[in-house]
Amino acid sequence: MAAAALANQVEVLAFDIFGTVADWHGSIVREMRERHPQVDGDAFARAWRAGYKPAMARVASGQLGWTLIDDLHRMILDDILPRFGLAHLGGEEREDLNKVWHRLDPWPDSVAGLERLKRRYILCTLSNGNIGLLTRMAKRAGLPWDCVLSAEVFRAYKPDPATYLGVAKVFDVEPGQVMLVAAHHEDLEGARRCGLRTAYIERPLEFGAAQPKDVSARPANDLHCTSLADLADQLGLG
């Protein structure tokens, strides 16, 4: 579908957050540099994130009951701290460090890009992060959401169809009137299976400069964008 026709069909833009709108890796590295400069923040950030999918898989399989991402992040954190010489951290220190996910910095283009997109579209989050986390992150970073939606609302983690179809249901639109905006192909594939439109955002430094991502275009996506500003350009927003 041509970009102009797509721009007119879509009513809701739903955004993945970790890596797409917010720089989780750089934010964790920054906090580790401030709190524990003796630790390799780059390796620490990647180790923490590496536990993300396995932890969610335990919930999806029924091994764990429904669990908020805040609590999964804490479980992963407790597991990795000894590997980085931080087993001595007390409960309050661990809890505050775990809330780094509430304090993630947006990518440099995120706020301005979202403000442009908001002129025409309903903007919502569609993240596995819980509502409290996403709301506090938005408040701190100035992210101008119209609505905060989360896996918590649907009690299912992406790529469960309940998440993507849930957005359409919340706004009483057809799936094809919702576009998922994400930097992760698995997420976008899940959205397409449910009939959503998809826009890929290049975030080559999501895992840090030492581990650049392949951000090559894939023809299955409706749009391929270098940034949220580029997404606004392609959708015809000045």
Results as ranks from 00 to 15, higher is better:
residue 12 V to C: 01
residue 16 D to F: 10
residue 18 F to G: 01
residue 21 V to G: 01
residue 27 S to P: 03
residue 27 S to M: 06
residue 30 R to H: 13
residue 31 E to H: 15
residue 31 E to R: 10
residue 35 R to W: 12
residue 39 V to A: 01
residue 41 G to T: 01
residue 42 D to M: 04
residue 42 D to S: 11
residue 44 F to V: 01
residue 55 A to D: 04
residue 55 A to Q: 09
residue 57 A to W: 07
residue 58 R to C: 06
residue 59 V to P: 01
residue 61 S to C: 02
residue 62 G to M: 04
residue 63 Q to A: 15
residue 66 W to D: 04
residue 75 M to V: 10
residue 78 D to V: 10
residue 80 I to H: 05
residue 84 F to G: 01
residue 85 G to Q: 11
residue 86 L to C: 05
residue 91 G to N: 14
residue 93 E to K: 04
residue 94 R to K: 12
residue 94 R to W: 08
residue 96 D to P: 03
residue 96 D to I: 10
residue 100 V to K: 02
residue 101 W to Y: 11
residue 102 H to M: 08
residue 103 R to E: 09
residue 105 D to I: 04
residue 105 D to A: 14
residue 108 P to D: 05
residue 109 D to K: 08
residue 114 L to D: 05
residue 117 L to A: 05
residue 118 K to S: 05
residue 120 R to N: 07
residue 121 Y to D: 06
residue 124 C to L: 04
residue 124 C to W: 02
residue 124 C to R: 13
residue 125 T to P: 03
residue 126 L to T: 00
residue 127 S to M: 01
residue 135 T to V: 11
residue 141 A to V: 11
residue 142 G to W: 08
residue 145 W to I: 00
residue 146 D to M: 09
residue 149 L to V: 00
residue 149 L to I: 06
residue 151 A to V: 06
residue 152 E to Q: 15
residue 153 V to D: 12
residue 156 A to H: 09
residue 156 A to L: 04
residue 157 Y to N: 00
residue 157 Y to D: 03
residue 159 P to T: 14
residue 160 D to G: 10
residue 163 T to Y: 09
residue 164 Y to P: 00
residue 174 E to A: 15
residue 175 P to G: 00
residue 183 A to I: 07
residue 184 H to S: 06
residue 184 H to P: 08
residue 185 H to S: 14
residue 186 E to G: 12
residue 187 D to H: 07
residue 189 E to A: 14
residue 191 A to M: 05
residue 191 A to D: 08
residue 191 A to P: 13
residue 193 R to T: 09
residue 194 C to S: 04
residue 196 L to P: 09
residue 198 T to G: 02
residue 200 Y to C: 00
residue 203 R to P: 06
residue 204 P to G: 07
residue 204 P to A: 01
residue 210 A to P: 02
residue 211 Q to F: 14
residue 211 Q to I: 14
residue 213 K to W: 12
residue 213 K to V: 07
residue 216 S to R: 11
residue 216 S to Q: 10
residue 217 A to N: 13
residue 224 H to K: 05
residue 224 H to G: 05
residue 224 H to P: 03
residue 228 L to T: 02
residue 229 A to V: 13
residue 231 L to G: 06
residue 232 A to H: 07
residue 234 Q to L: 02
residue 235 L to Y: 08
residue 236 G to V: 04
residue 236 G to D: 14
residue 238 G to H: 15
